[in-house]
């Protein structure tokens, strides 16, 4: 998926959790991404995060450490 779309979708999630108390919001974003994002998408997510995380919502950046890094691809 295009980086813009991925950033957009992550931020869309953050926008929902923004209205929660902060800690709950951070946990909510991480939990949501862990539950629903396929490893390939999370892999791409971390590539963007590792490259500086440009464009991501604050809440997404804060949630990133709690998001599971996908294992290496197994064929």
């Amino acid at each position: 998926m295009s980086p813009e779309k991925l950033v957009y979708q992550a931020n869309q999630i953050a926008r929902f959790f923004r209205s929660k108390p902060h800690a709950e919001g951070v946990a909510g974003v991480a939990d949501h991404i862990n539950k629903f994002w396929e490893p390939r998408i999370r892999r791409q997510f971390f590539e963007l995060i590792d490259a500086g995380g440009k464009g991501f919502d604050e809440l997404v950046l804060e949630a990133a450490p709690s998001i599971h890094r996908p294992a290496e691809e197994v064929a």
Binding site: M1, K35, E38, P39, R40, P70
Partner: peptide, 18 residues
């Protein structure tokens, strides 16, 4: 135990070649 791709993700992944 990892979640799979949703339909729109499948199409994105297809365009990406995976």
């Amino acid at each position: 135990k990892e979640p799979g791709l949703r339909i729109p993700n499948m199409l994105d992944a297809a365009v990406d070649g995976t």
